[in-house]
Design a protein around this nucleic acid. Sequence first.
DNA 1: TAGATTGTTAATCGATTAACAATC
DNA 2: TAGATTGTTAATCGATTAACAATC
Lengths: 216, 216
Amino acid sequence: MNKKKISIAVIKRLPRYYRYLYDLLKLGITRISSKELSERMNITASQIRQDLNCFGGFGQQGYGYNVESLFNEISNILGVNETFHTIIVGAGHMGQALANYGNFEKRGFKVVGIFDVNPAVVGTAINGIEVLHIDKLDEFIKQNKVDIGILTVPYDQTPAVADRLARLGVKGLWNFSPMDLELEHDVVIENVHLSDSLMVLGYKLNEMRNRNKSKN
Amino acid sequence: MNKKKISIAVIKRLPRYYRYLYDLLKLGITRISSKELSERMNITASQIRQDLNCFGGFGQQGYGYNVESLFNEISNILGVNETFHTIIVGAGHMGQALANYGNFEKRGFKVVGIFDVNPAVVGTAINGIEVLHIDKLDEFIKQNKVDIGILTVPYDQTPAVADRLARLGVKGLWNFSPMDLELEHDVVIENVHLSDSLMVLGYKLNEMRNRNKSKN
DNA sequence: TAGATTGTTAATCGATTAACAATC
DNA sequence: TAGATTGTTAATCGATTAACAATC
């Protein structure tokens, strides 16, 4: 039943297709060829056709792709039409920012709980959700469906909290600490390494400066 | 003078080396072989040696790598020892979270200005830095060295603000809007697509569930 | 010295691109 | 039908891994 495994490179491009198709839809464009889309997205038409064919033949020879139906296909592949229940563990600045970011809910990610230890925030509401003390985590997860744990706790607490969530049956972790989480459990992890990204930007900046300097 | 271009795949691994070497340094480990490091990092020793040799022969046959000197080399390559001056444009939740995140300064990224249009935040201080009205952006950049603009403005304002910063001579942009910024100017851009990352997590979660289901 | 481990070349693997027959 | 464009196979490119001589 399972086809060949889809490479992570392809999967990472899916949200990008999703965004571009959404924009096309809003622009009222009903059909698009891989060539036109390739020009907009700055990738090759060949890659687009290869990528999409990992999931099925969504196009039609001589016509191209119907924007709306392709958008729906990609949405389904990404699970945007489902609702993933998430909890935010760590209601510091980053946790609060994520709790307040409306875009995630549009894509099917609903924050159902926020946890912290700090008495100054426990009991307050962020974006309409009461912050609970982390002692209530076990009870909460047992009583509520929780698909994804968003980890915005301090660095040194991250492994323990991740492990605790995994033991409680949370199958997806979105980690904001600058460490590579590895768990023995059957859990999928996405790391968001903001400082890594910033350091890459710093590197590129220096590299560009050196390039320009050596032009003289 | 220029050696062969270093691939983006290698560059993206540099912060990861940086983090692992920093940890080793803190653990008091003075030397490490590519083999030992490969086991910790879960990559091949061959890749480590290939990666490092893009920048120079930092190791010694029969010995391995000196942790401290390798850490220093990687730090220099990434520019961690320089100071990049950044401004945050958009003092919403994400902008505030980034302004309050101390880790960036440790890696040489110093927030020197924060800008917004909202009268409720203009004039307040975030992490000791006064939020200025965005009308003062031009004046500020002319009077201060600004290397990097951090874009945490609303989606539809992002292209215009990016363009404005580029015209004012800001050479690095760190973009948090879910769009692929492209500028004609000589500017390097790092996109942080949080919702893309979350959607990839959602995909992986579904994929794992389907895999487990079909095991039965 | 002998053992260990690098730096580097060569082999392999996987991802991207090109090409084109199928077909709408 | 003729033109356009897909789906898919084959070719190319680049990145990862293996191998090993050099050498500390």
